[in-house]
Design a protein around this nucleic acid. Structure first.
Lengths: 170, 170
DNA sequence: CTTGGAATGTCAACAACACTGACATAAGCT
DNA sequence: AGCTTATGTCAGTGTTGTTGACATTCCAAG
């Protein structure tokens, strides 16, 4: 089923980067890198009573202030019950504020409180620090490739969500 | 704390790729890509009674046949209790075989049975398929950058483990 | 105005996967 | 003989995810 050695393409272009061995290394790099990627925020979060899910919620609320619960659900790709548990604790602890929609009063619009913003900053600072280090060490070309490959790996269904989020960047 | 706009370095070299906005996009790309990365194996696994932890165990046993439990523990970065639960079911189901060490009889050396190899194939085929597609779409230069950045993002403690694993590749 | 459906919230039960702490066994090392 | 290492196991706990069921609110179409 796996196509094994890819070797050189008929067209003469070297496709050595598509061998199973290269793919396996990519897979393992992805595994270990993701662990590093989440390590710093995780350390901060366990000191409080929060987990990775809280981080994600806080990140995307900060990213798109006033987003509705449903929108956040689409971004995070979890069930409303799962998100609700997280949101409830964040609201109770005064990190997130939920406002009833003006146009559609069924909707809840989510905002970070100053306290919530402080946590978001703390978490993303830690995460950015690692990423900045990695980016700086490898240079702009590597970073461009990194981004291209990651984006090509995103699920088709998530493409739209990601693109919308990306273009909304300042 | 975040250093904000990086703009151009004094040296004249453009460091635009290190702006907070670029880093944020990298972070979000990483988040969505990892979801895609695990999506295909996850779908296969939920059909059986297994989860992501089983996938990881099977992957690394296949990768380093005869590895000891302790070694696997270091690679996976979990507690022995957590790994043991997974290993027990895999052994019970006849996917993994555990052999007492010859030199040191305290150690258990782990191997995949043919049945275990079949599952490993199925899972990694699915994962490779997506990665191959992403690699092919973006080209060898992007792939090189992808790998460089990922490796720079790996935790210092995990560097050694990753390097050992990588060099042991055929 | 009534009704259907969408958006949201909540309750309960459950599973996967991680953790800690404690303890047991066997085997190697000094 | 005594300490350490490698492994396994039991019990308890926490986070994060899932389903399923049900209530509420409210927009919008008939």
């Amino acid at each position: 089923m796996a196509d094994g050695r890819t070797g050189s393409a008929p067209g003469g272009e070297s496709l050595l980067f598509l061998t199973d061995e290269q793919l396996r290394q990519g897979i393992e790099a992805m595994f270990f890198a993701y662990r590093g990627f989440t390590a710093d925020p995780d350390r901060i979060l366990t000191d409080m009573a929060y987990g990775r899910a809280h981080h994600r919620a806080v990140h995307f609320i900060n990213r798109a202030p006033g987003t509705t619960v449903n929108n956040l659900l689409n971004i995070l790709g979890v069930t409303k019950q799962s998100l609700n548990r997280v949101l409830r604790t964040l609201i109770e602890d005064g990190l997130v504020q939920s406002k009833v929609g003006q146009a559609d009063k069924r909707e809840r619009h989510l905002f970070l409180t100053p306290k919530g913003e402080a946590l978001e900053q703390k978490l993303s600072d830690a995460q950015r620090l690692r990423m900045r280090k990695a980016f700086r060490e490898t240079g702009p070309e590597a970073v461009a490739g990194f981004r291209k490959v990651l984006e090509a790996m995103i699920d088709r269904e998530m493409r739209t969500v990601y693109a919308k989020l990306k273009e909304s960047g300042s």
